[in-house]
Simulated scan of single mutants.
Amino acid sequence: MTEKQEKIITAALELFAEEGYRSTSTSKVAKRAGVSEGLIFRHFTNKDGLLDAIIKMGEEQAKALFADIVLEPDPKELIRKYIELFITVSKDQEAINFWKLQFKIKWELEIYGEHKMEAIKGALINAFEKLRYNHPEQEANLLLTLMDGLATRFILQQQFDMSETIEFLKQKYKV
């Protein structure tokens, strides 16, 4: 991706978060990015193409975040790493801003993108199976839902301290 494409995506993410996707014009994105509107059309075709690029960027970052977890052979360690993932992310302000913008777009446009969670879900199911949980798929779904809720709470209320809940989950799963 070129520097100008990155500027366009960053500007679009910021504006979509501030004003909403539907209220943001490509001319506003171009102005914020310091590029011509035509350059947006050349690289992304239209505003929907720009949104697709942002969503794909989120999917790539999710894959990168989950890569170490998914490849973990020890089931307890895999679960622990997943539970502690948000502690790591919460220490990086740039990551917080990126995910906040991704969540805001997801909420406004009612796009969940469950497919980006397939690898981590499969890894969690496998871990719960190895640990002989009675309902490994339901445990994986429960943990995914709880962590999604924690992320949402953290994004909406940055003073929220998730450490107690993280410790509770680690105790619950004995990791």
Results as ranks from 00 to 15, higher is better:
1 M>N: 11
3 E>L: 13
4 K>P: 03
8 I>E: 07
10 T>V: 08
11 A>L: 08
12 A>V: 01
14 E>D: 14
16 F>N: 07
18 E>I: 15
23 S>W: 07
23 S>I: 03
26 T>W: 00
27 S>L: 12
28 K>H: 05
30 A>K: 10
30 A>C: 10
31 K>L: 14
32 R>W: 00
36 S>Q: 10
36 S>V: 04
37 E>W: 03
38 G>H: 12
39 L>I: 10
41 F>A: 02
46 N>K: 10
48 D>Q: 11
48 D>V: 09
49 G>F: 12
49 G>R: 05
51 L>D: 01
51 L>F: 02
52 D>K: 08
53 A>R: 08
54 I>L: 09
56 K>V: 01
59 E>D: 10
59 E>M: 01
60 E>W: 10
60 E>L: 13
60 E>R: 13
63 K>R: 09
64 A>Y: 06
65 L>G: 09
65 L>T: 05
66 F>G: 02
66 F>I: 01
67 A>Q: 08
67 A>R: 05
71 L>Y: 13
71 L>G: 07
71 L>R: 12
72 E>G: 10
72 E>L: 06
72 E>M: 12
73 P>N: 07
74 D>S: 09
74 D>P: 11
74 D>L: 01
75 P>F: 00
77 E>D: 14
77 E>Q: 13
78 L>M: 05
78 L>H: 06
79 I>N: 00
80 R>N: 11
82 Y>I: 01
84 E>Y: 12
84 E>N: 09
85 L>V: 11
86 F>M: 06
86 F>C: 00
88 T>C: 02
92 D>I: 11
93 Q>V: 14
95 A>M: 13
95 A>I: 05
96 I>R: 15
96 I>W: 01
97 N>M: 05
102 Q>W: 08
103 F>Y: 15
104 K>A: 13
106 K>P: 00
107 W>E: 14
108 E>Q: 11
113 G>A: 07
114 E>T: 14
114 E>K: 12
116 K>P: 03
118 E>P: 02
119 A>Y: 08
124 L>N: 09
127 A>Y: 05
135 H>E: 13
139 E>H: 10
139 E>F: 11
140 A>T: 03
147 M>V: 02
149 G>Y: 04
153 R>I: 09
155 I>F: 05
156 L>K: 11
157 Q>V: 09
160 F>R: 06
163 S>P: 13
166 I>P: 01
168 F>Y: 14
168 F>T: 07
168 F>N: 10
169 L>N: 04
170 K>M: 05
170 K>T: 00
172 K>M: 13
